[in-house]
C-alpha cells in the first residue's frame, strides 16, 4: 500500500468476495436469489426486493461507456500529478449494472458514448487488483 500510494479499497463484509474475485481475474456481481435482479455495488440485501438470498455470478466483463470524464487537474495533486490526463467512466455491463472504472489503452479523446469495452484486470500490487476497461477490438 505504501509503495502504491493511491487510494485503495477497504474491503468489508459485503465487498470482500468482489475484491477477491478481482484478484482471481473474475468480475463477480451479485444476483438476487429471490427476484433475480443483479446489483452493484455489493450489498447484503437486494435493493429491489429486500431478499438476503444471493449468488455471486461471473459477469461477462463486457459493457458500454455510459458516461465519462477526463481528469486533467490532479486531485490530490501529489498523488495524481503523474497520471493526468486519465479517464474515469461509468461502464454499463451487459448484465445491466453500472460501475466506476478507468478506461485504459485508449486516447482520452477517442472516448465515445456507448463505446463497447471489455474488462482488463490491473494487478497493482500483491494484494490489490482493480478491474479496468479497454475498448473492445472491432
Amino acid at each position: 500500500m505504501t509503495a502504491y500510494g493511491k487510494p485503495v479499497p477497504a474491503p468489508d463484509a459485503d465487498s470482500a468476495p468482489y475484491w477477491q474475485g478481482c484478484r482471481e481475474h473474475r468480475l463477480l456481481i451479485q444476483k438476487c436469489g429471490a427476484c433475480g435482479a443483479v446489483r452493484f455495488p455489493p450489498a447484503s440485501l437486494c435493493p429491489d426486493c429486500g431478499s438476503a438470498a444471493h449468488d455471486w455470478i461471473a459477469a461477462s466483463g463486457r459493457g458500454r461507456v455510459y458516461s465519462w470524464i477526463v481528469v486533467t487537474y490532479p486531485v490530490p495533486k501529489d498523488i495524481y500529478a503523474g497520471d493526468v490526463p486519465y479517464v474515469v467512466a461509468l461502464v454499463e455491463l451487459d448484465e445491466g449494472v453500472r460501475l466506476p472504472t478507468n478506461i485504459v489503452e485508449c486516447d482520452p479523446h477517442d472516448l465515445m458514448a456507448d463505446m463497447p469495452v471489455e474488462v482488463v484486470f490491473d494487478d497493482v500490487d500483491d494484494t490489490l487488483t482493480l478491474p479496468k476497461f479497454r475498448p473492445l477490438p472491432d
Binding site: K6, P9, V75, P76, Y86, K132
Partner: peptide, 26 residues
Amino acid sequence: LGGGRELAAHGVTQYTAPYGWISYPQ
C-alpha cells in the same frame, strides 16, 4: 471540500476513489 480523501477507501468510496474519482467537480 474539494481537497481529497483518505488513502483507505471505505464504504461506497471503495468503488470510486481507487480510480482517481475523488473530487466533487469530478
